[in-house]
């Protein structure tokens, strides 16, 4: 029996008669990259929202490191070590690239208001350490020389990478990425894949991501689960899922704009 970082059992979520999630089970092992794929409206983002405490599921269990997340608020979930990015870029417009990352570290900093204003030795040391760590993260996202810029001037792919390392700044053990490669071109996608791999390998963070682009999914994932109409239709190693007839059906039966490239 493997110890799973995140375990989901029989998750149900309905919105006014529409069933967004139907008996979903999911086991995410530690230090892996786990992808959720599925056509639009399959319930992937709903699943993220349930994990992250945006709204409670109607039925089912969500266990993180063996503790239930049901009933926790978003910030409590965040403090348990689950960070997240959104489908659309949501950066702080008024902050520099470096500051964005530093905000992510705020929750772990000890200095109080008075200490910060008086510039005590401990506060300065802590600030210095935070900046060092932030620079390390920016290095990882290849944003080092843009650290004093405001996010609006960054290319879209760089904004995406920034969002991911910003989420990483709070030192999570599980990172939820909602379509990290959306709107990103091919060479930049390579870079994104590389970044996500390094997050797993160098930071030991488990990544759960939602993605449309099957090529990304196959090259990135250790495990894949396919959602269709709120149901998990297949899961396993990417090669297994690609061969799974129900998974293929789920994609072929859906809208043609999906890039399901096998």
């Amino acid at each position: 029996m493997i110890d799973y970082l995140l375990q989901i059992r029989g998750l149900m979520k309905r919105f006014d008669g529409l069933t967004a999630l139907r008996w979903v089970d999911l086991n995410v092992p530690e230090h892996t990259i786990y992808s959720l794929i599925g056509p639009n409206g399959a319930g992937k983002t709903t699943l993220f929202d349930c994990i992250h405490g945006v709204y409670p599921p109607d039925e089912g269990e969500i266990n993180f490191r063996g503790h239930s997340l049901i009933g926790l608020s978003t910030d409590q979930v965040a403090r348990r070590g689950i960070a997240r990015t959104y489908q659309t870029v949501r950066l702080f417009d008024g902050m520099t690239v470096l500051e964005q990352v530093l905000v992510g570290m705020h929750g772990r900093m000890r200095t109080g208001v008075i200490g910060a204003l008086l510039r005590t030795w401990t506060s300065r040391r802590e600030e210095r350490r935070a900046i060092d760590f932030a620079r390390q993260l920016l290095e990882l996202a290849r944003l080092s020389d843009l650290d004093e810029q405001f996010p609006q001037v960054l290319p879209h792919a760089a904004q995406r990478r920034l969002e991911i390392v910003r989420a990483l700044a709070s030192a999570p053990s599980l990172l939820l990425l909602d379509e990290p490669a959306a709107g990103v071109d091919e060479t930049e996608t390579e870079e994104m894949i590389n970044l996500i791999h390094r997050i797993r390998d160098e930071f030991g963070v488990t990544v759960l991501l939602v993605e449309h682009d099957m090529s990304v999914v196959t090259s990135i994932s250790d495990f894949v689960a396919v959602l269709d109409y709120g149901q998990k239709v297949a899961d396993g190693r990417p090669q297994e899922v690609q061969a799974n007839p129900r998974a293929i059906e789920a994609f072929l039966g859906s809208s043609p704009d999906l890039q399901f490239r096998l």
Partner: peptide, 26 residues
């Protein structure tokens, strides 16, 4: 305080996008 301290950064984050700031542990 607002521009140069960690608490100030957190404050600005809350001002800009409370939901995201909360997600980041603020």
């Amino acid at each position: 305080y607002v521009a140069r301290t960690s608490a100030g950064r957190a404050l600005r984050a809350v001002a800009e996008d409370r939901a995201v700031a909360v997600l980041m542990g603020v």
